[in-house]
Structure formats: C-alpha cells, structure tokens
Design a protein around this nucleic acid. Structure first.
Lengths: 205, 205
DNA sequence: ATATAACACTCCCATCGGGAGTATTATTCA
DNA sequence: TGAATAATACTCCCGATGGGAGTGTTATAT
C-alpha cells in the first residue's frame, strides 16, 4: 500500500468540502493550486485510489449514459486523518526558477540575451498577475464555489498575489539595472547593483 | 545518450567559471543555488558524465593519496552550448509550498493548528533571511569566490532576498489577521481579510 | 450533419528526491 | 599519540513525479 503524500492530503482536503469525480478533482487542481502545489494531471487519478486503500475515502462508480466515472467521498476516518495532518508543520516554499539560472550565468552570454531573459520573465509575471486579478474579481464578486471558505482562500490568495507582485518588481528593477551596464556584461565597473548586498548584509546577526 | 536538463546547464555554467571535482560541484550546488534550483545531491554526480557524453566537458581522474577523484573542465563546444542555452527563454518560478496547503484547508482544523502552521513558516522565513543576510555580508565583504561575478550574483541575490522578505511579511500579516478570527475558524463573520481580494480585483483588465 | 471540445480516464518512460552504503583522508581533542 | 569524528568522493536503489500519448464517450458549436 502506497504511502500518503502531500498531494494525497490536497485531494483529501478537497473531498472534505464535497464529493468529486476524479476529472473534477483534476480540474480543480488546475485552477489555483498549481501556483503552490503543482502536480501532473495524470497522477491526480491515482491519489483518490490511495485514499480508498487507506480507508480515508470511498469510491462510487456512476454512469453518464454509457460512460462510467468514479465519484469519491471522504470518510470519518478521512476527516480525522486530515485534521491530524493539519497539526503537523508543513514545509516552507520551495522555488524552482530556470530563468534565474540564466541570469546567474548571464556574463557568459550577451547583454541582449540577459535583457531578453528578463523581459520574458517580466511578461510571464504580468500574465500571472492578470490571472490572479481575474480570480480575485471572481472570488470578491460571486464568493466562488465555496463562499464560506472565502477567508482562508483570501490568506492563500494574498501569498500568490505578493509572489506575483514581487516577481514583477524584481524584473523591472533588474531590467533597469542591466540597462546601465556596458555592452560587455562580463565587465561592468562599480555596478550600482551591488548596493543590494550591502543593504541585506546589515541584517546579519 | 541522456538529454541535457536545466541541471546539466547549471553544472555547465559552473564549469565555465573553473574546473571542479564532482564533490566540489555538489558543495557549490548546496550554497545558494538550492534557493532557486534545488536538486538532490546524489544526482549531481551523474550530470558531468552527461556533459562528457555530449562533448561539452572533459573528465580527468586525479588522486589524493590512494583516493581517486574526477575533475571536470568545460570544452569550447561546451561554452558554445551554454551561450546558445542562455539565448532561449527560461521558465518562470515554480513554487511548491506545503505549508500553504495546510492554510488552505485550515477551517477543517483548529485555530491553534493554523497559528502553529503560520508560526512555523514564519520561523523558517526568519532562518532563510538570516542565511541570506550572512551570505550578503560575505559577498559584500570579500567579494566571494568570484568577485568579477558580483554584479550577476547581486541580481540573483536580490530575488532570493525579496522572496524571503515577502514570505516574512506575509506570515506576519496572516498571523495578525487570524488572531482576529473567532475560536471556530470555520465561521468568521465579515472577515477583514477579504479586502485583499477586492484590492487585487481592481487590477483585473 | 459534422466537427470540435469536454469528459473520463490509462499507460509508460525518463527524471528526481532522498536515504543508505562504502571507502579513504584530514582534523580534532583527550 | 591514538581514537574518534568530520570531510572527501563517490555508488546504488526505490518510490514519487512530470509529462506526453493514447482510447473511447458525450456535449456543444457551427
């Protein structure tokens, strides 16, 4: 029997709200959760089965015409397991950022390449902000599918929003700084950018 | 022959700076890079071999007493490959944040559990800030192992710093908001927290 | 009437996280 | 000086994951 992962508990948490078919769960996982718990859709289908194996959920086979689907529901044991899990501290954010790796080695390329990298990150940040703003508009307007959960959603949303804002600010700042650098980005003299290190260093204990 | 991943290019980028033994590469990958490109140490040993297979690096077997070690160096083909890679846009940040999942389902648990979750995230954010501040002090003081790369390092550092600051701010804010909620966190009436949604919604196009 | 999108999955391979294990050399501290 | 411990230098392996391809059915758009 496979062990339960954070993804299992995400599914269990969703099942605590209502019953879902696996397809609906996969849909829901695509809406907002990928911004802090991204998982491949193909594997979402495995998770509820694990929950059933552990007695945390039940599966019911239903039909839409001749097409079958499986609808899952949480059990009492499932609710208890979820509550226990909520009591254990969760891991802090883990960031994976390929664009930043390209910035790190930027002096091996051209100034144009670096600016292109920064602009593409900036464009993505802008798209994310738009996405989040639209989501906020929907939640603030209709209350979303679970209006009684608006307060916890707002906590989570705030993180997503601040993350997107931070990225946009950082990109704009970096573009501006790099614009000041000479054409050969491997040899800037006295770059102003280094002041960020001195500022951060003052916080060292 | 295995295909090159972002991790391969991280190693290639490090090799562009100087020759390293695999152990040194693994060490270096632990210093700052895990904050934006975390990879398991055990796999770092495989990457340089891939680079050699592709002709982007050469391996040299050396000895420290009777203990052998492999030292890798970049080739001209490797430098060209790195430059080409720098020209292609990199993926934006991907965030994985288990703690936030616990916040999302917090109304299934107790107020105490939620506050504990937030406090543990806050504590981790503080540790990260301390780590970054110490790193900044070192870089600003000695210039670090590659003083000629201080300017690109500063760009990357700024992102790490802002990320840590943002997390600390978010946690402090969330703790304060939750403190205002009633004991039964599933039923706060008119939570002030929802204003963040209204504010963000004004940015929707 | 037909094409396309949404629904409802399954299968599979390469990648990755992470722990355990092996052996040698350097450092610390009693 | 000797023993313990840390650092160096890896290898092996299992289970979790990303992500693409594939199969068939039902609803919607044109």
């Amino acid at each position: 029997m496979q062990r339960l992962t954070t993804t299992s508990y995400v599914i269990l948490g969703l099942l605590a709200l209502r019953r879902w078919s696996t397809y609906e769960l996969a849909q829901q996982m695509r809406r907002t959760i990928p911004y802090y718990w991204p998982r491949a859709e193909s594997h979402i289908y495995e998770e509820p089965r694990k929950l059933v194996d552990h007695g945390l959920a039940t599966a019911k086979r239903e039909f839409v015409g001749r097409r079958p689907r499986t609808v899952y529901a949480i059990t009492d044991k499932g609710r208890r397991a979820l509550k226990r899990w909520l009591g254990k501290p969760g891991r802090g954010p883990l960031v994976e950022f390929e664009g930043l790796v390209k910035v790190l080695f930027a002096e091996q390329g051209t100034k144009e390449q670096l600016l292109t990298t920064l602009r593409s990150i900036g464009a993505e940040a802008e798209r994310t902000r738009q996405h989040h703003a639209a989501l906020a508009a929907e939640l603030a307007g209709t209350g979303g599918p679970f209006p009684e959960r608006l307060h916890v959603n707002a906590l989570v949303f705030k993180f997503m929003w601040e993350q997107a804002e931070m990225l946009a600010r950082w990109t704009a700042w970096a573009e501006q700084e790099v614009a000041r650098w000479p054409k050969d980005v491997s040899k800037p003299r006295e770059p102003k950018v280094v002041t960020v290190l001195r500022e951060a260093a003052t916080f060292a204990s």
